[in-house]
């Protein structure tokens, strides 16, 4: 061939020639799996020996400490906040997605408005809410009404719901948008009003998206660190904050590892319970 190849093109060409016939699709999977294995599974497994006081007579000393009141509170609070955030976020996201799927032609514009916040760092968004809610902030300036929301549970929930909303809108919108309009028409002609069509046809058919959204938001929210750190007070400390404190402030790697292990086990256990209740395989398989 007379065409002169550029530097980079030449290099990729040589590499391509070398790999030709030696690499199959299953090899591609290995890269992904290898990455996850090396940087996710292995570190988590390493936490187990770290959490134990090996060589002493009380190897489970850290776990005993985890059962202390303040830590149990942090666990309970994490799952509770996770749950409340999920409920609030799903409700908001469902209404928004419904509007997107059935009531507007301007889906693209609306989607951009929903996606753009994802480009902005969490910390910036939390600080935005912090400023907005603060007694000297815009909300107080505009309304002349100083809220006591800052550093309370509602402030944390508002922050979390705000940040995780896009993660819920995408799967819910997808499943609502996939509903054939003829099904809605059929329901109406069969005698069901708008509301009954929503409860009997649209809602059941959007369940896969709702469940997927719920899982994503719950897992993200229960493990949040920045939200409670910026918008909450001492009484809003969640488990991620406790782990970070033990790890970064107190350098107590053993205790931090124990907390992390317990949290992971509880979360996985919770998902298993959820799975038996909703049969995730079936629900998620329909997406």
């Amino acid at each position: 061939m007379s065409v002169q190849r550029g530097g980079l093109g030449r290099v990729t060409h040589i590499i391509g020639e070398g790999l030709e016939g030696r690499i199959a699709n299953r090899h591609l999977a290995l890269f992904g799996l290898g990455f996850v294995g090396l940087f996710f599974v292995l570190p988590i497994l390493l936490l187990i020996p770290e959490s134990l006081n090996l060589g002493s007579t009380t190897p489970f000393e850290s776990y005993r400490r985890v059962a202390n009141g303040i830590y149990v509170d942090a666990f309970v609070r994490s799952f509770l906040y996770g749950f409340v955030t999920t409920v609030v976020t799903l409700a908001l996201a469902y209404m928004l997605s419904y509007f997107l799927a059935f009531s507007t032609e301007r889906v693209r514009t609306a989607m951009i408005l929903i996606i753009v916040p994802l480009w902005i760092a969490y910390i910036v968004r939390y600080f935005g809410i912090l400023l907005f809610l603060s007694p000297a902030g815009p909300l107080a300036d505009l309304t002349g009404f100083e809220t006591d929301l800052l550093f309370t549970t509602p402030a944390v929930i508002i922050g979390l719901a705000n940040v995780y909303l896009p993660f819920a809108v995408l799967p819910i919108y997808n499943s609502l948008n996939a509903i054939d309009e003829e099904l809605v028409n059929a329901s109406r002609v069969l005698g069901a009003g708008k509301w009954r069509t929503i409860t009997k046809v649209i809602f059941p058919l959007s369940l896969p998206g709702l469940v997927a959204a719920g899982l994503i938001v719950f897992i993200l929210a229960a493990g949040s660190f920045l939200g409670p750190a910026v918008l909450g007070g001492p009484n809003q400390t969640m488990i991620a904050n406790v782990i970070a404190q033990a790890f970064l402030d107190n350098f107590n790697i053993q205790f931090a590892s124990a907390l992390a292990i317990v949290y992971t086990v509880l979360l996985v256990g919770l998902l298993l319970v959820f799975n038996t209740l909703f049969d995730l395989q079936e629900v998620l398989g329909n997406i």
């Binding site: 003829e182 099904l183 059929a186 329901s187 109406r188 002609v189 005698g191 009003g193 046809v201 059941p204």
Partner: peptide, 29 residues
């Protein structure tokens, strides 16, 4: 509105509710 007209309609796509059985589909109307 459609639900007040007492009309029966069969659609090209059939528009059967996929989450219901045949019996539930017929019972719906």
């Amino acid at each position: 509105p459609p639900e007040k007209r007492n009309i029966g309609m069969a659609f090209q796509s059939t528009a059967l509710f996929p989450h219901m059985t045949v019996r539930e589909n017929i019972a719906y109307g």
